[in-house]
Structure formats: structure tokens, C-alpha cells
Nucleic acid binder design. Structure first.
Lengths: 184, 184
DNA sequence: GCAATAGTGGACCATTTGGTACGTTATTTT
DNA sequence: AAAATAACGTACCAAATGGTCCACTATTGC
């Protein structure tokens, strides 16, 4: 009963992700969010407790969508998945790099729930990476180390995207890295 | 003639670096800077044009000090310098990681002069890395590629420092990476 | 059609922001 | 010591911030 919302929660989140991604939590004003989502203050504050809550929800949705893509779980497990994981750095939501990696800088100032989601997600990615490595190289303790290096490298290329290098350069870099780690 | 300053420019910059490093340009208020430096507004605005100017000066000093340490120019050139370069991620000024890497997230919102300093510095580091690689492996085109990977990896470990992993973990990671690249 | 209800837009609020102006204080030079 | 001067502390400013409130509007179920 009563009026119907002119927006959907997911649509708002998708728009919010883009602006949080680009400018971070602190540098994004509620006005920015109104403009980007097309939803007024009252709508936003009806749907979300406050700006931080909206940020947390955005971060959660970001990973939900990424996980749904199944980059690291597609069969067969192996190098291909690893390479596609690295290519996530090309971006989405109209943005470059990775929302979470970009948010890592202000990690200490983020809402605890957002931090938790970020930490859990990287842990999960690490675990999935190990699975993919094991499929290629068999079980072994060094899969853990290598997975760690891959995550670190991923963070690095995501960050570099902010410098706005052309896609060809980053593709080359990914190939170089893949060659490096497949060779061992 | 007249009164003497109660602060030195360099001392202010060193204090400012720490707070900009931790919170970024946008999230650092002038009041934060007053508190951290112990210098009042009038003092700060007498020494620097505005907040952005202070940020640029901080970034410049950061690299001046790093360059003075000569991490990548110490003789003899080689793997040792590369490893010490990676260890820069342990931090300084009481902060973890790298001021410039941490600022990369808000790159698009930074003052142009700051961006210029950052780009020039990474370019310089890249060139110096190639020199160190050449000393170990001889000249070759792939020194350029490898130097790129090293810079990317460096960015990655710097970022990860924000998650606050213990030093032993990151040391292990650096060793893993060094082993990986020395082996090829 | 009408009352109940849910959503919207905008006025409004206290606080904080970056930045300026200026009177006061300390020190140097003569 | 006194004039000159440079730095300091503080009051102040307009603008923007995150957030609340409420009159109004549209839609629902009866």
C-alpha cells in the first residue's frame, strides 16, 4: 500500500559503487551520491542508515557480483582462471582496477564491516587461487606462497590503472607475469 | 629582523608527510595539520600557499629523502639493490608502505604538480631498476619488462601494508618474489 | 471515492571545511 | 631603549558537510 519507490536498491548500489570506487568514501559527498543515483537524500536515508552503511552495502554488492562471475571457480581449474583473475583489473562499473584495492588506501578509516568484507574476500580469493594452482602443479606448500604473490601482483596492476596506462601495456604486463609464474 | 619562526619548513613537512600518508589529501583537514605539526594556521599559510601546496611540498620532500638514501644507486648495482628497493615498503616517517603508492588511489584528484612528481619518480625508479638488472643479467629488452613487474609488485606489497600484516609475512613474500625473478 | 500509507522533495540544522584578516607579541637592528 | 618588523594566536567568514524533519504527493486496499 502507498506509493512505490522510483528506484531499486541494486540500481542505487551499482551507481554508488562507481562513485565510491572513483573518489573513495571520504571524498564522496552525499550530494555526489544523490546526483549519481538520481535518488534524493530522503530516498537514500530511507534505504540506508547513513553514508557508511551505503558504502558497506556497495562493497558487499561489488563482491557478490564478482563472485557470481565465478572467475576463479570456472572449470577446468588452472592457469586460465588465474589469468582471467588478473584481468579483473581491467575494471567494471565503468571504472578501472578494483573497488576493493582502491579502497585499501583508506582502509584504516573505513567502517569495520567494510573492512571485514574486504579481508574475507581476499582470503577467499587466496584459497581459490591455491585450488587453481594445485590443479596445474599438484598439491604443495609453495602454492600458498605463489597465490600470495599473485594477489600482490593483482593489487599492483589495479593500482597502476589509476595512472591511466593504456590497456595494451597492462595486457603485456599480465602476459609477462603469467610467463614468469608458469615457468617455475 | 623581527621574530623568528618557531618551526623549520622541513620539520613541518616531515610531520605533514606522516598525516597525508595515513589519511590522504582529502581526508586530512587543516586542523589535523595544525595538530600534527604544532604550527597554527597563520604559520602554515605563511609558509605554504594552501593545503594543496603543502601536499605537493610534502610529496617532493618524500622523494628527495628517498633518493638521498640511494637505495637503487648504491654500488655495486644488482639484486641486492632490488631487494632493498622492495624493502622500502616497510615504511618510514612512522608509516607503512609508500606515501606515493598510497596516494595513487586519489591520483585523479591530486594537484597536477603532485601527480607530475609521482609519475617522474616511478619513471626514474624504473630506469634505475633496469640498470641494476643489467648489472646482473647483461643488457636486454626483457630487463624493461622485469623492471615493470618489480614496480608493480612493489606497489602491491605497499598497499597490503595497509591491512597491517606482520613484518615477517611481508619479508617472506619479498624473498619468494626475489627467488622467482632471480631464477629466470 | 476515500482513508490509509509509503515515498518524495526541499527546507532546515549544527558542524566542519579551507582560507583570510588583524590585533598582539616577540625579537632584531639601530 | 625604541622603532621596525616578522611571526603568532584568534576571531571570523562563506561554503559545504552529513543528517533530520515534515509538508506534500502518489498509490494502494477497501
Amino acid at each position: 500500500m502507498g506509493r512505490r519507490k522510483l528506484f531499486t536498491r541494486e540500481d542505487v548500489l551499482d551507481k554508488a559503487i562507481a562513485v565510491f570506487w572513483k573518489h573513495g568514501l571520504a571524498e564522496t559527498s552525499v550530494q555526489d551520491l544523490e546526483r549519481a543515483t538520481g535518488v534524493g537524500k530522503s530516498g537514500l536515508y530511507a534505504e540506508f542508515k547513513d553514508k557508511e552503511d551505503l558504502f558497506v552495502a556497495s562493497m558487499r554488492r561489488y563482491f557478490d557480483v564478482l563472485v557470481a562471475r565465478g572467475t576463479l571457480t570456472n572449470q577446468p581449474l588452472g592457469w586460465n582462471n588465474v589469468e582471467n583473475f588478473l584481468k579483473v583489473c581491467y575494471g567494471s562499473w565503468g571504472q578501472k582496477g578494483c573497488f576493493s584495492v582502491n579502497s585499501m588506501r583508506e582502509f584504516s578509516d573505513l567502517p569495520p564491516k567494510a573492512r571485514q568484507i574486504m579481508v574475507e574476500s581476499v582470503t577467499k580469493a587466496h584459497r581459490l587461487l591455491i585450488g587453481n594452482l594445485a590443479a596445474e602443479r599438484g598439491d604443495g606448500e609453495d602454492n600458498d606462497s605463489l597465490a600470495g604473490l599473485i594477489i600482490t601482483f593483482f593489487s599492483g596492476i589495479c593500482l597502476e590503472q589509476n595512472l591511466g596506462p593504456d590497456r595494451a601495456r597492462i595486457t603485456k604486463k599480465i602476459e609477462d607475469f603469467m610467463q614468469l609464474i608458469r615457468g617455475i
